[in-house]
Each structure stands twice: as C-alpha cells, then as structure tokens.
Design a protein around this nucleic acid. Structure first.
Lengths: 304, 304
DNA sequence: TAAAAATACTCCATAGGTATTTTAT
DNA sequence: ATAAAATACCTATGGAGTATTTTTA
C-alpha cells in the first residue's frame, strides 16, 4: 500500500464517482479504477459496491475511510511537528541554573521565552556551576546558566548578565548603622562566609580578588553551597558576605545590605552550551537570549 | 510523500546506517539515499546528520520517527478494522424487538451473541411488529425480531422461536380455581384483552383463529399496545387474555396462568431483515441466529 | 586511507494515458 | 441506448540498479 492508494480512495469515497474523482485527482479514470482495485485486493475486501447507477461505500469502506482521514491528518501533523522542531519552536530544553539567579534573572528569562516559544517544554535543574560542567559531559543538560568565568574546551560560554557586588552584614554588626557605601578595607578583620571553591570558581575567585585589591586576604569561616544559605548564615551572626546585588530579593529582617566603594568588579552570569550541540531548540534559545535578554541586562540591579 | 518514504526512513532511523538499512529493505544503497533525500527535500529539513563515522537522527528526525511509527500502526489498524467489518465481526447493529421477547428470548440472544462478537455494538429499539416494518422502509433498523406471520416483499423473514399460548386469568376469576388445562370453548363468554391489529397482525390473527377453531369469536374489550400492558389489564379484572407462555416472566400476584387444551397453534417470533441488506454485520448476525439460537428454541417454555 | 554516503547513468517496472469493452439500467 | 466502470494495451515517469566519486575521520 502507498499513500497514493489512500488519496485515491478518499477522492472516490467523497465523490462516489470514479470519473469525477479522477478529474479531481488530475488523472484519467482507468488508472484510478486500477489503483482502487489494487487496494481492495491487498485488503482482501471490497471498499465500494459498484452499480451503474451509483458507487457506494461498503461497511468496510466506511470504516476504512474514517481511518484514512486519521492517517492523512497524522501525516500532516508529523510534517508540521518536524518543521517546528527543526525551527527550534517545539521540543524539550533541559536548562540548568545556579541558585543565585532563581529570584530575578531566571523568571525574567522563562517568562519572556515561553511567550515566544509556547511549544517548548523547559525542564529546570538547579545546580552549581561545577555540577553543570559535569552534567554537560554526561549530556544531561542542554543549556546551563553559570557563574563566570568558566573555561572549558567543549563549551560555548557567553556573558548573559552582570551585576555589582554588595556587602551583607548582620543587623547587629557595628558597621550596620552607617549610611552610604562601605569601604572594602574596613572589612579586613571580618570573617567571610563563602561558597566552596569546588562548587564554582567564578564567585569564589571574585571575592578573593576583590579583597586582594583592598590589600587583604579574607578570613574564611563557615562555607555554604548556595548563596541564599550564605545569607542565612550572615543573619545568624556567623560572619559577613559579599554577594551579587540580586540577593536582595531574598528578604531577611536580620541583615542589611550596603554598596561597595570603588568596586568595578561585577558578578557575572553566563550561558553555556556544548560546542557539539545540534539541537535547534538550543540554538533558538541562545539566539533568544542574545536578542531579548542580554540587551536588557545593561540595566543593573542597584541598592535603592 | 509516499509510504515508501516512511518505510525507508524508519529502516534508516533504526539501523542508523544507509547500507544496512538498504540490505534490510532489499534494495541497493543509492536509491535509499535518494528516497531519503526526497523526503528531506519535501519536508524542507534534514532528518539525519551524516558523517562518515555515523548517521544520526536530528531533533526533527526523532520527532518524525515517533510520528512515523504512529502512522504505520494506524495503517495496520485501519486494515485490520476494515477486515473485521468485512467479516461482520465489528460494527454497529440496530436491532428492533417486540416487548414480548424482552424477558427471555432477547437477553438469551444478546448474551450469546456478544460473547462471540464482542466488537459489535448493538443498538436496541423496542417497537411493535408494525412499527418495525415501517422502520425497515426508512432504513432505520438493520434487523427486527417480529411476531409472525409477516408478509413483506422487501424483507427476509425466518422463524426464530415458537412457544405455546396460555390463558391468563385474574385470580378472582371463577375458572381460576381449577387444576390442569383450560378448554378454550369455556371462554366463549369472556371479554378478551388484545393488542390492536394495526400494531401487528400475527398475534391478533392467531387469537382470532384460535377462538374460531373453538367455535366462537372473542368478545373484545380494552386494547393495549404491549403484552405486559395486557397482563396489567387482566390483573385489574378488565378481562382475560391468551398470551405467549413467556409472558410468565412478568410476575404478577393478581393473575393465574393456565395451559390450553387441544392447542397446536404457537406464538411465533421471527427475525426480519431487508432483502437489499449488504452489511456483513447483519448477515453474520442472521447466521449466528440460525446456528446458535434457532436450534435451541425447539425447547419450548411451558407452565411448570 | 578506507568506509560510507552521494552522485551519475542506465534500465525497467509500473503508474498513467488512450481506446475499447462490459455492465446495468 | 447510455452512462459509467472495467479491461486491454501502450507510453513514459521515476524507482532501483551499477559504477563511480566525494567526503571525513
């Protein structure tokens, strides 16, 4: 059986007249008769009852017609769906992200993206930058939102969003009463709460380098995997932290935020994807970020 | 697009190797490459990513493969369903029946039939024999279970089931005390409750002829369309009735049943279908009745 | 370089055309 | 007698084969 047989069958079933069906199909009547007969022979039954006065569908023909329509529809759908997937408009996107962007950048991205690409189902996975790099090796994620800088032979990485660092102090801290910006040099004797370097070098190295530029090495105390855990530790009075400014979306009455004086270093979030990536969904997502998200992110989140 | 394209695509997608797929399809490799390229051109996208080391499905190819399987399955199902319909094993049967058989014969038929033909959906319509004959003219029913005899140019009619007549008396009737059979001649002065002749001649004429053979014409009183309504009228003391013995399945404490003396006439139920009927379901149903129901119906329902 | 897909061409099977017959009213 | 489908036969498109080239790891 070929689709030709189904197309011809549908035409005859709708016209109930071989001659008219042949005209509609732009072929002559005899080959149409032959093709229908071929189909009937293959099925081992008659699809039409032919008399001179009229051609009629048999019971089996009626059943077959219903299914023939379904088949034709399914074929159309299959073609359209393949085209959508090819254009990156349909499919699945496994997106990893670090906890730091869960409150502002990620929701902004998702909202804007799903509006343009409603047929893509995004599977979100929260993990540290280091975990994301491992996941890329296992092909477990398509795109990762990472803390920069990241160096990897096998990944493409582009800057997505930058924001200033801020100082987070417990409300009871002696510096918490002052107004304006805090000079980093004043924090030389503080205990710093940080994330472990092996869960992401970007943030860790930024803080170290910030302190180096102010002339000291930070004294480390408790480590926490996620930035909002760092905030909790500060709130409990275990130390202070320097964090990206969007951490202010985590509300906590026991802490206060301050901008940093003389700070030109930023907390940079990047987008990473495999250099061997071929999925159109991934490329359409990256293109979308370039066009719709990155330009907006010149707007930086500042303390008001 | 032709089904050939889908078959070839599935083979290549499963083998991920044009050469092996060609062997499986029993064609040589070049035409396979050509057909796949045709399909890709028609879809306007690549289904496979080809490198020397390996052929791989693209994202669009994966989507299309899933749908290609569905299409192939649907085609198989369409063929099988058409064959079942052609063999009369699947489809719809609109079956009309008279009220008299609703309690015994009809359930017996339905139970046995649905066991052998579970894929046929039976639509039941209760109507008098006369209504059934009209419905046949309107092509509104496929098969009718009628009270015989019925004469019709356009219908086939076969005897399905015969049962004796019995006398139904109100409990308070003066003959209700006796034992054994009742002699029809004793009913000469009774008022008979009957169905109107124009809702079915078979039953009406049988009763008239029974009485004629006993030497009298029955005095008629109230008429009722359905036999169980006749029973109700007898129960309320409005008269007596002669009814097919299966009416005993209608339980009523206010009446008593008696066999008839010297009675060789039976109440005959027949099966009717159009002489122009072509539906295999109808023919398989008639064959089923001939083979499974009619032989059993030598067993007649008698008063115990 | 070698394995595999693509290309070039050739051939023939068969879809489709033309002419005619059969069929049923 | 006639309208319509089936049959007979012919034509030619394009699917499939063989030989060869291109590709890329």
């Amino acid at each position: 059986m070929e689709l030709r047989h189904l197309r011809y069958f549908i035409a005859v079933a709708e016209e109930l007249h071989f001659g008219r069906a042949a005209i509609r199909l732009q072929i002559s009547q005899p080959p149409l008769s032959q093709q229908i007969k071929q189909l009937e022979t293959e099925l081992g039954l008659l699809l039409f009852s032919r008399t001179r006065q009229r051609v009629d569908l048999t019971a089996a023909g009626k059943s077959f017609l219903k299914n023939a329509y379904s088949i034709m529809n399914l074929i159309d759908q299959a073609c359209e769906e393949a085209k959508r997937v090819d254009r990156g408009e349909s499919g699945q996107l496994i997106l990893a992200f670090t906890g730091a962007i869960a409150f502002d950048l990620l929701p902004t991205i998702l909202r804007a993206y799903q509006e343009v690409y409603p047929n893509i189902s995004i599977i979100l996975k929260q993990m540290t930058t280091a975990e994301q790099i491992k996941s890329f090796q296992k092909n477990a994620i398509h795109v990762g939102l990472v803390v920069m800088p990241v160096t990897s032979e096998s990944l493409n990485i582009e800057l997505l969003h930058e924001e200033p660092f801020i100082v987070v102090l417990p409300k009871t801290h002696h510096l918490a009463q002052q107004k304006g910006k805090i000079n980093l040099a004043n924090l030389v004797n503080e205990r710093f709460i940080m994330t472990p370097r092996n869960s992401g070098e970007g943030y860790y190295d930024s803080i170290i380098s910030l302190c180096q530029s102010a002339g000291f090495s930070p004294k480390k105390t408790q480590e926490a995997e996620e930035l909002h855990t760092v905030v909790s530790f500060v709130a409990s009075g275990m130390g202070i932290a320097i964090l990206p400014s969007s951490i202010q979306f985590v509300k906590n009455d026991d802490i206060v935020y301050f901008p940093l004086q003389h700070n030109f270093q930023t907390y940079n979030t990047g987008v990473a994807w495999s250099k061997t990536e071929v999925s159109p969904v991934v490329h359409s997502f990256i293109s979308f970020l370039r066009e719709s998200i990155i330009p907006d992110c010149s707007r930086q989140i500042l303390i008001n």
